[in-house]
Structure formats: C-alpha cells, structure tokens
Design a binder for these strands. Structure first.
Lengths: 124, 124
DNA sequence: GTTTGACTTAGAGTGCGCTCTAAGTTCTAG
DNA sequence: CTAGAACTTAGAGCGCACTCTAAGTCAAAC
C-alpha cells in the first residue's frame, strides 16, 4: 500500500502549524484535539490533514485571546456531533463580540499612541 | 489655602482609571510612574491630574500588549528629559508596528471565525 | 480620645499558557 | 546489528502580570 501518505510526524506538524512539538502535545493533553491523534506504526503520533486544519483554526481562536478553557468547551460540543451545532454557533458568536470589542479597544489605543507620536515628531 | 484640591487618594485614582489599588501600587513599584507620587499629609499617596493622565496612557500601552518591561524603558527615557525625545519616538513607532501587526492578525482570525459562523448558520 | 475604615509595606500566592526535563522507547540509515 | 536521531510519558519549572495577605499606621466621625 503506497498511496501517498499525507499524514505528518509531530515535528512536521509543528513546522506546518508554527507551533512547537511541546505545544502540540500540551494541546492534546489539555483536551483541545477533536479526536484522538492516530498512532502510526507504533506509539508515534500521525497528524492527518483534518488534524492540521483543526490546529490552524484553534490557533486562530487562541490568537484572538480565546482562553484554553473556552476552546475546550467548543471541542466538547463538537465531539457531541451535529446536535450541538446551535451551541457551537452561540459560543462563536459570543467570542466574535469579544473580538470586536478587543479590536475597538486596540484601535482606540492606537489612536492615542499615534497622537503621541505626532507630538514627538512636531517637537523635533 | 483652600483652592480646590484636585488630587486623589489611591482608591479614587483606582476608580478613575479602572485599575485596582493593588495594580496602581504594583505599577509604581515596577517603576512605571514618571515621577514619585506625592504623599499628602502623611504617607498616603495623592494622585495628581498628570499622574492620572499618565496612568491612562500607560493603560493604553498595556491594552495594546506592550510588556511592562517596555513601558519601563519608555518611562526611563522620559525621566531623562527632552534629550530622549527621539528615542521615545522610535520606541513608540516600533510599538505602533507591532500593534498594526496584531490588528492584522486578529482581523484575519476574525474572518475565519466569521466563515465558521456562516457555516453553522447555513447548517441549521 | 476611641472606633472604624482607608491606607501603608514587604512579600507570598495565583492563574495562564506554555516550555522544559528526565528517563526511556522506537525508527532509520549505514 | 548498531548508532543516533526522533519520538514517548509524566511531571516539574518558568515568565508574566497581577492579586492577595499580614501586620501595622493613619485619619475622619462621633
């Protein structure tokens, strides 16, 4: 059986996602992976395409400051199947509102910083 | 001498800035205040208008994820007087670039989240 | 002048999100 | 078959930014 094996070792997955192997294992232990990661040939992890897609999305949740605990909630809903679609939608919509608030706050702060920068430029 | 005393106790300053009294003392100990805070009548802190203005700006730096150590660098430059204006400008400009990068990353992540939200909405 | 509440300090504790370590196992190249 | 690189686990450690505690001092109201 030599179809192209598209699955990745942990270090390849790390390179692909921009996370460290430590972080990938940590996320798994923290219950943030949707299903168990395959163990190919032996005990070594094999990351599938869909694992990588999920890690990418998870990274986007994290980069918008969703706490690990909230990501875990989302994952637990996802594990329950399509019956939890509404709950997942609501979780994401609530998170969306916090992201918009963060963007607004940062944008306001940026304006103040820009103002100060303008002041220093004039003062020269 | 009964001009209006515009200075504030630490708890008033806390209320005004939205920080806790603990955090105000912590910031001071961490070297983040421009000058020493006045001690009125005794040992109790008295926050002046300019102290409050500074805390507000410092809070904007923090809300754009400037680390405490970087804020301290800025403060140390400010304490050196106007000779450090160029250096302060450069520090703020560098920070500005990181803020823009953060905004860009968050905006990208938001797009992915919105995409997922749209998917869940359709799926109902 | 005494009570009550706000203030003071130094230092310990907390929560988060990694990040690293140690000791051992497995894969791969030669 | 062997050497060395990459992997495994459980658990400890770390850096950041607060946040709280304890033991005491001070101030405003009665």
């Amino acid at each position: 059986m030599t179809l192209v094996d598209t699955s990745l070792s942990i270090s390849q997955a790390a390179e692909r996602t921009g996370l460290s192997t430590h972080t990938l294992r940590y996320y798994e232990r923290a219950g943030l992976m949707l299903g168990g990661i395959d163990r190919a040939s032996s005990t070594h992890r094999r990351y599938s395409d869909s694992d990588i897609v999920w890690v990418d999305f998870l990274t986007k949740l994290r980069s918008t400051a969703m706490p690990i605990s909230k990501v875990r909630e989302y994952v637990e809903l996802a594990r329950q199947g399509s019956g939890s679609n509404q709950a997942r939608l609501e979780l994401l919509e609530a998170h969306r509102r916090t992201v918009l608030a963060q963007l607004a706050e940062m944008t306001q702060s940026l304006a103040a910083i820009d103002h100060k920068i303008a002041f220093y430029r004039k003062g020269n």
